[in-house]
Structures are given as structure tokens and as C-alpha cells.
Design a protein around this nucleic acid. Sequence first.
DNA 1: TAAATGGCTGACGTTTACGTAAACTGTAAC
DNA 2: GTTACAGTTTACGTAAACGTCAGCCATTTA
Lengths: 136, 136
Amino acid sequence: MTDTKSKHDQTYTISQIADALDISTRTIRFYEEKGLILPKRTAGNQRIYTPRNMARLKLILRGKRFGFSLEEISEMIGMAAANLNEVEQIEKSLKFGDTKLKEIKERKKELELLEQDILATRQKLIKRITQLNREQ
Amino acid sequence: MTDTKSKHDQTYTISQIADALDISTRTIRFYEEKGLILPKRTAGNQRIYTPRNMARLKLILRGKRFGFSLEEISEMIGMAAANLNEVEQIEKSLKFGDTKLKEIKERKKELELLEQDILATRQKLIKRITQLNREQ
DNA sequence: TAAATGGCTGACGTTTACGTAAACTGTAAC
DNA sequence: GTTACAGTTTACGTAAACGTCAGCCATTTA
């Protein structure tokens, strides 16, 4: 064991995070404002992000890419935040998580449908282009 | 062959569509305003929707559920509208469709990640609740 | 044919998710 | 130590995607 900085101690500034995730600093601060993340601060009041904070931001962005609103994502995360409360809270969270899992299953199905829609259009276009080539 | 109304002739009013797809009539008119659908009209200027129109609306809603903006969806659909143009147009559309197919593949992957995030939280919660039960 | 119901077109209002700018403070490099 | 850059808060602005009237026409039903 050495006292060299381990991967665990790695931290990031807000702009490093912004670059890494390709979002604006404004967006990051906005998510904090909405209670989606809570980074620590330096003595000089500047935000510092851990890899854990980073992971959470990635989760948020993933959720967004699937059309979940920030409020919905906030609820999903609230699930994790309930961590150390009473049994009821945890059970409620589990239920919520299960609902989300069902939703994700449905989304998977729909994703297939969307793919097929596009593939069908693709086929039509190819057919049409073949026809045009034959005509000329 | 009879001259009975075939499934092909089936039409719907705007509120029938709204009920069937669980969206507001305002939303439907809004999509029309944005050029996403173009229903025929009755003599009295009321909108009439065919099953084809219905299918398109379903496609729009599917796209939305995956976080595509209406403008993006509009482009996807433009793909279909290019149907009877020149070769270049069609080729451009094909390219666009392929891009979307790639995006969909990525989304599928991310959907898996999202699912795993939730499952991981689920595991933690279950572990915690088991612990609480043992303590009591 | 009158009344209820549904649809049509504006037009303004609202919510979500940030963008942008101002005015100030902290930090790094010279 | 000062200049330049990065970060902070506060506040107003904005685009997308509808919601919600209002005032008018169409259609169905009693």
C-alpha cells in the first residue's frame, strides 16, 4: 500500500465534467439546483466532483435520452437516496424501481418496432431506386 | 367482393384518434401544424384520419418516447415523404435512415445500462432491508 | 328546428430545460 | 502582485411542446 492518489481519490472540476460528458456547466449546475446531484465544495466554494458524481450524471443523461423528464429521473434517484431510511421507504423505492423496470421492458419492445418502421421504409426506398435504375 | 366498407375504408375523427392514442386533440392539431401529418378534410372542413394516418401518429409517439424531438421525427418522416422524388433525394434519405438505425442500436445498449443501474440499486435496497430485518 | 355536442382557427399562457449575461470571487501562471 | 482564466450566484431570456380559452361553424340527436 502506498499513499499515492488512488483512482478512488480522483476528483474533477465542473468544466472537466462538462467536457467529459459533453454538456454545459450551466446544465450541471441546473441539475444540482434540481437536487439531482450534490457535489462537495472546496474551501473556496468551488464544486468538486467524484467518480461517483460522474456516474450519477451519466445515469441522468441516459435517462434523458429515453425521454424521461428530470422529475422522473429525480424520483429514480430518490430511490437510491432513501438508502438508509426505514423499511417502508425502502419498500416504496423497490416498488418504484420495479415499475421503471417494466417501463424499460416496454421501451425495449418499442425500440424494436421503431427499428422495423425504419427498416420497412428503407426497403421501400431501395425498391423504388431499383425501379428508377431499370427505367433508365 | 361486396361493396361493404372494408377495413381499408375505415376513418376516424380527431377525437376518436385522441382517445385511441391517449393524447389531446390539441396535440394532434399541433403535429399537423408542424407538418408531421396531413389528414384529409370533409366537405365541412373537419379532419378525417385513415388507418395510415393513425400508424404515422403511433410512429411519432414511439419516437417521442425515445427522446427524439419533433423536428428529428419530422426528418425521419420526411424520409418516407421523399418516396417519389429523384435518386439523390432517396439516397440522402437512405443515409439518414441508416444513421437513425445506428442511433437505435446505441439506445438499445444504453437501455441495458439503465436497466442494470436500476437492478443494482434494487440489490442494494434488498440487502439493506434484509439487514434491517436481522437487526430487529 | 332547436339544443347539445364536436370541430375549427387564432391567440395567449405555461412548463421544462436549459442559454446568456452581469457582477463578483478564487486560482494559476508569470 | 497582477493579469487572465475558471468558477459562483442571481436573474432574465428562450425554444419546444403543448394547455387553455374565445368565438365561430358543422353535425348529430331530441
